[in-house]
Design a binder for these strands. Sequence first.
DNA 1: ATTACAACGGACTATGAGTCACTTTTTGGT
DNA 2: ACCAAAAAGTGACTCATAGTCCGTTGTAAT
Lengths: 75, 75
Amino acid sequence: MSINKKIGKRILTLRKAQKLSQEALAHKADVDRTYMTGVETGKRNVTVRVLDRIIHGLGTNFATFFNDKEFDDEK
Amino acid sequence: MSINKKIGKRILTLRKAQKLSQEALAHKADVDRTYMTGVETGKRNVTVRVLDRIIHGLGTNFATFFNDKEFDDEK
DNA sequence: ATTACAACGGACTATGAGTCACTTTTTGGT
DNA sequence: ACCAAAAAGTGACTCATAGTCCGTTGTAAT
């Protein structure tokens, strides 16, 4: 699976856990509502600066965000 | 510190540990040597797709790459 | 029927990807 | 210490795409 898709899935999971709408998360992360959709569906190749805002908007950090089965398959 | 700089420092650390030159790593990651310099010095806001190539060029993965003190300070 | 949410599209602007010629710093050998 | 070569950094550039802003469509719940 592409890194885009893995990241999108991870965001979706964490967002649902927080019971946030895409729009609410987009607002916290200061990105466009429609852009968040693109990120979650794996269509977007985000930059680390935007990913940083999204991750913090989700109330977590890089270490925790990537500490997931999806991200340690390839070594 | 900016996320760019943190990532640059982390790459430098892992690259040195592998005793690789920027050029050698750049080759593995399929990016230009001068581009690698820009990333390591924190001047570039890389996309996750490029970061993916660099991380794998370093022989590691996202989970391990971000499993570092630098990345769990803010929560 | 209305409301809230998610996906999608097109047009647009800002900025990242990728490359080059050149300079500076670091390294190792004698 | 000196010198040459390797390694790392800089500025400027083109082209692709990241990211925004307008809207529409589909779905589910009320």
